[in-house]
Design a protein around this nucleic acid. Sequence first.
DNA 1: CACAATTAGATTGCATACAATCTAATTGTG
DNA 2: CACAATTAGATTGTATGCAATCTAATTGTG
Lengths: 148, 148
Amino acid sequence: MKTKNELLKVEEQLCFALYSTSRLLIQNYKPLLKVLDLTYLQYLVLLVLWENDRVSIKTICEKLLLDSGTLSPLLKKLGSKGLIVKVRSPEDERSVLVALTSKGKAFESKSQQIPQQMFCQLGLKSKEVEKLKNQLRLLLNNLVSEPN
Amino acid sequence: MKTKNELLKVEEQLCFALYSTSRLLIQNYKPLLKVLDLTYLQYLVLLVLWENDRVSIKTICEKLLLDSGTLSPLLKKLGSKGLIVKVRSPEDERSVLVALTSKGKAFESKSQQIPQQMFCQLGLKSKEVEKLKNQLRLLLNNLVSEPN
DNA sequence: CACAATTAGATTGCATACAATCTAATTGTG
DNA sequence: CACAATTAGATTGTATGCAATCTAATTGTG
């Protein structure tokens, strides 16, 4: 049984482990993404679009668990880089569809190597990575489904 | 064996699992920290100080894996809130020591319940949390020790 | 059909993150 | 001991995150 004082230690806390590991891993992406002049978040949005071109901003928000306050300026930036275009949905004028330009599509093939390169830097076995991902998804599910 | 296209899916990526779970967990802290009018990062700095009062800014940076660009303004804020004071080290005038005020110390007892409350929200068993923390620490170690 | 409620995005304001640069203090070296 | 190199923090600039608010479009309801 851990005492309350032990529980208040930074090193003991799951959230800090997540927070610091997440930041560090994102930093490891930077040299790989610098070649494409992309930030990690810009890369995430492109990942969504490579999976499903012409999706609404709302869908991107849901997939990345981010809100429009974060994504609006980012999509503007991706637009100014010539990687995407925004089109108002004909069926629902409130909705804005995001589509890849040919340049945006071309970036997909340039990114093929990134997942493997990142995997090598993890220093973990495939099985371990899968296990970790599964645990994280379980936790994420618990957190999103509990609205408090 | 996964194809390259599968690997480029957001849902497949460990980093995204880390990134989104981390953000979501930090959001879960907000209602608990709002009572003390603290942000998660401010809480982290206080955790460090409750463990070891009168530490240098450099030490805080190392413990939290953050740089002075992030912590300098944050410590200024904690100072203006009356939770800490900064004193230049007598032995080394470059170094700045951070010390808790009585108010800052008093916040420790007010935070005693937070770890348990957070644990309840995770929806995981103690064993699972420990396993997850261990895996994350292993990964973190791999990432920091590989300078590329 | 009028109109309140909801919804999709954008904007604003504040709080991180982090690279790059700057200053002042200390250390290492000839 | 002079002085180059290093070190601790602070500052600046850019890019997130997210709460709160705003606008315009759509939906639900009497």
